[in-house]
């Protein structure tokens, strides 16, 4: 599910980076409140565990084997914010050291797997983890984490112009691996319960509306991604709609502002414009991220 560099169009990867950077910064702060700086070794070692866990194979189907992906398991054992931090670190190390997943598209990968995937895997446990539906919640958490991140990844690829047929193959793979991940997560949690009951925390009695807002947000992301996939299956439905209603004509008039369509208009050659707009986008993301970090740090000091 790691998207390599070169697969996403400039508009998509800059957009995803712009979403991922503030999300990770805010969530990292949240995790830091629970695990202060001095607990960073714990999260690092648990990240190493997820890497190592991929060496243990589970029988899945005839002659094939699967391994743990880990988002939901980390969310259930460490809590969702910490799991996001660990998964982001894993994705960064995979991109840098193992050339698994790209650098420019790291925002997209982090958003798919470490943010949306982890929180989708955590939500069922958050709502039903303390009830008699606990097992079902853990299973569906594992399955959802894979399914939701896969759907997001495919929507991003589709938005970048990859033909729907190429995505159908990957969709099939993910449809199979989602329940497998659910089953593995559930089996590991049960085994952990047997070894030492304290490992798997009971869902924290946080503010319920907080989780509800989150659930609605995630559902919106999921439905949006599904929408992109479906609308693309019907040949260019949205574009036709745009043409019919005359939108396409109007859209062409708009690009006069410097960054519209991610193309800075002060360069002449089209690729220069795109490249410059990409770099300007990165700079902008960088600035916003720094500002959020500063504000969060200032707030932490004043508390």
């Amino acid at each position: 599910m790691h998207i390599p560099d070169g697969y996403l169009s400039t508009a998509v990867w800059t957009g995803m980076d712009a979403l991922a950077a503030p999300a990770v910064i805010v969530i990292a702060r949240q995790a830091q409140r629970r695990f202060d700086d001095a607990r960073a070794p714990l999260l690092g070692v648990m990240g190493a565990f997820v890497f190592a866990a991929q060496m243990i194979n589970f029988p899945a189907g005839v002659g094939t084997s699967a391994h743990l992906l880990g988002g939901a398991l980390l969310a259930i054992t460490l809590g969702a914010p910490a799991a996001t931090v660990v998964m982001s670190a894993i994705i960064a190390i995979q991109a840098l050291v193992f050339q698994d997943g790209g650098v420019l598209v790291m925002g997209a990968n982090i958003l798919n797997m470490a943010v949306v995937g982890v929180w989708a895997g955590y939500l069922p446990f958050r709502f039903a983890g303390a009830t008699r539906w606990r097992s079902a919640a853990i299973f569906s958490g594992g399955a959802l984490s894979v399914l939701v991140s896969a759907v997001c990844a495919m929507a991003e690829l589709r938005l970048s112009g990859l033909p729907p047929k190429t995505l159908a193959v990957s969709a099939l793979v993910f449809l199979i691996s989602a329940p497998v991940e659910g089953a593995i997560t559930l089996a590991v949690v049960k085994a952990l319960d047997a070894i030492q009951p304290g490992f798997v925390r009971r869902p924290e009695p946080g503010r319920r509306w907080h989780s509800s807002v989150l659930a609605i947000g995630l559902t919106a992301v999921f439905l949006g991604a599904v929408g992109v996939l479906f609308s693309s299956a019907a040949p260019d439905g949205i574009e036709k709609l745009g043409l019919v209603s005359g939108m396409a004509g109007r859209v062409k008039v708009l690009p006069g502002t410097p960054f519209s369509g991610y193309e800075a208009s002060f360069f002449t050659s089209p690729w220069m414009r795109k490249a410059a707009a990409g770099l300007a986008g990165l700079a902008l993301i960088y600035g916003i991220g720094l500002a959020i970090g500063r504000v969060a740090a200032a707030r932490k000091r004043s508390v």
Binding site: L43, G44, G47, A48, F51, V86, A89, I93
Partner: peptide, 13 residues
């Protein structure tokens, strides 16, 4: 914090 986690991850990987 994220970078520190990444560093420990790499160290113990």
């Amino acid at each position: 914090f994220l970078l520190m986690v990444a560093q420990f991850l790499y160290r113990y990987l």
